[in-house]
Amino acid sequence: MKVFVLIMLLMTGGLLAYGVKDFPGWSNPNAPASTHVSPRYIQAAYTKTHTPNIVTAVLADYRGYDTLGETVVIFTAGMGVILMLRKKRRNKGKDNV
């Protein structure tokens, strides 16, 4: 079992490493990730949103819909925990109610 798991992990890791081989090097300023979408954020975020913190501008404005989703995730988790763990108060004695 453990050997099988290890072989599977090595395959997964190998595949990930195979993908990495074609990556641009780490922290290369000319990598596509840093040249396609993000320069516009750095250049235009302040004039569009008047927020010096670019991460905040992108989080709350450009990708605000994602952030809404993020809040909903927390809400979902909260409701889920209430659904699963909340017990009737009767179990602990009625005088609490």
Binding site: G69, G80, L83
Partner: peptide, 17 residues
């Protein structure tokens, strides 16, 4: 990425249910 966020909303609610 937005698909991922909603995938997690879906997943979390189904785990609890």
């Amino acid at each position: 990425f937005n698909l991922f966020v909603f995938l997690e909303i879906l997943a979390l609610s189904s785990y609890a249910l």
